[in-house]
Nucleic acid binder design. Structure first.
Lengths: 337, 337
DNA sequence: GTGAAAGCGCTAACAG
DNA sequence: CTGTTAGCGCTTTCAC
């Protein structure tokens, strides 16, 4: 059925080794032999069995990307970047979704484990510590930082980023600034909340507790509900910092439904800079992490550990971000209806 | 380093075969032996080398999903669904992006070829015929139909869907209906255009050629430019049918920037039902393909061909769709600014 | 029921 | 420079 190295060898009248040499681009092959092998290669349509090669080499060229949900734009965009970075380095990317369940991830890493993938990039949604202590392969964590686990970690400075976002709201004159997205199970939520608080404190602004709204998930609907809650407060906010762009999109929608004008009546800032946020009405001011840098750094780390077998202490790398200022805070944006 | 079947066997004092039997759930193993093997298994923390197993079995449990770009929401959502469907069937999904280049795809399928993946689901962006005639593994095509290639194909009825969308515009009283997204290289574009034309013809409406606007890519920016073009026409349209939601998002934005009210001055219909389209301002009326059905059907087909080794003639399966009516055609939607 | 041995397709020593 | 040989870790006849 499938044509093997041996088939080619017999057809060319040489040994397997010679064929292997040709296939792998080994330089020192007698011209005559090379010619015959190449002929046989073409004639048979030989294609190496990578599975066998991997078994032999002990590496597969696959890395896994484990994330909560691909449909969340942030993860989709990140995944795209990871894939293209990996492709450029001749790696293939296997994507697994956890959909919030820990078991899923544990199962994934355990079963693909050391033999089918060379390493994994993990973007957890919630804090988790012990279960990925030793999956047997190099791991890079994205976004959340489970402290005191000695593994590579790539993320932006969430506290600083949040602080930057809220500062911007203060600078444009807002005084009653709410936050949407508090969540005890998310490490980044705590950090963003800390940044929010730090900015308010530094400006000497009050921090009424009713302005910090929790969100169980970070989908558009959660943002919509949270905003509805804020707007029915006796004294609603004049600005909202949302812990991601999806929450902000929902918030934007609800604000409009309640007849609030953005940013005139209420300014909104997001986090993540989803592609869609540049096109919403109004376009969304947001924290823009350098996703390409995150992807590149993560793939690089995995490669160095897995393929080049480098040994180095766990890295904790901070990637840059910017504040993308758009209509939802400074706008006069167009109206549609 | 890694513990192998043999290690377990020696530790348990039995043969490799017996351990293999236990691991693979073979029923007839003496209770005593089974106990000892299980102990040894636990003690060593044995985990099968799937690579080796695959080499032997000739199957890997991997399927590839080849698509243009993961950041395009439609593909992101689809990919998410394919992944979860596959996970439920104990398959892993390898995602490769073509980013529009044919070579990429050809390379991907050729190199991963028959040995590392059991089958591939391919979502082409442009028409292509010959190059995937025989990749050596089962293939399922999504969306575009390269005619006279005898391979499985899963898609909605694009002509009917487009016609449905345009009919809706006619029903709400629009008479000067434009189309954005014409593109000679995309099979679906031709079909959607045909549906658009059919609807207009059936209603006895004129079809001024200047109302059919091409789009090189189907990104938001392309929609924005196309809409700008339409709005500066001496006699602008009162409705626009966009060949996907991204084009529609761009069009929406441009309409607003030009002070047009949607749908009062101009109605907009999209195609794909991206998640974000339910939250835009105004929310977008759009054709909603049953993406879950597409994903499920595709994975099913691959599995039957690859894993169960079923033989059956190439299938051409049409999946259902609905028209999701929202504010961009019937609205009074809220305003934000 | 279980063990021994062959071999999936490839690469890496080691001779020649 | 090229052929032979021995495995990578597993499943699978085939005897026992």
């Amino acid at each position: 059925m499938a044509v093997t190295l041996r088939d080619v060898a017999t057809l060319a009248g040489v040994s397997v080794k010679t064929v292997s040499n040709v296939v792998n681009g080994y330089a020192f092959v007698k011209a005559e032999n090379r010619r015959r092998v190449e002929e046989a290669l073409a004639a048979t349509g030989y294609r190496p069995n990578l599975g066998a090669r991997n078994l032999r080499r002990g590496r597969t060229g696959f890395i896994a990307l484990v994330l909560p949900e691909l449909t969340i734009p942030y993860f989709g965009e990140l995944a795209g970047l990871v894939i293209s970075t990996a492709q450029r380095q001749d790696c293939s990317v296997l994507i697994e979704e956890t959909r919030g369940t820990l078991d899923r991830k544990r199962a994934t890493l355990a079963s693909l484990g050391p033999h089918l993938i060379d390493g994994a990039i993990v973007s957890p949604e919630a804090l988790e510590a012990d279960d990925l202590l030793d999956p047997g392969i190099p791991l890079v964590m994205l976004g959340e930082h489970a402290v005191d686990v000695p593994i590579d970690h790539v993320a932006i400075d969430n506290v600083l980023a949040a602080r930057t976002a809220v500062n911007h709201l203060i600078e444009i004159g807002r005084r009653r600034i709410a936050a949407i997205g508090q969540n005890p199970h998310r490490g980044t939520a705590a950090q963003r909340l800390a940044g929010y608080r730090a900015a308010l404190s530094a400006a000497g602004l009050p921090q009424p507790p009713e302005l910090v709204v929790p969100a169980l998930n970070y989908h558009r609907s959660d943002g919509a509900h949270a905003m509805a809650h804020l707007l029915q407060l006796p004294e609603p906010p004049d600005a909202v910092f949302c812990f991601n762009d999806l929450l902000a999109a929902g918030a934007l929608r609800t604000a409009a439904e309640h007849g609030m004008r953005v940013p005139a009546d209420i300014a909104i800032v997001g986090f993540d800079n989803n592609e869609e946020s540049a096109y919403s009405l109004p376009s969304l001011t947001t924290i823009a992490p350098d996703k390409a840098a995150i992807a590149e750094t993560a793939v690089q780390l995995i490669r160095r550990r897995a393929m080049d077998n480098d040994q180095f202490p766990p890295q904790d790398i901070q990637t840059p971000f910017t504040l993308e200022i758009r209509e939802s805070t400074t706008g006069s944006a167009p109206k549609t209806l």
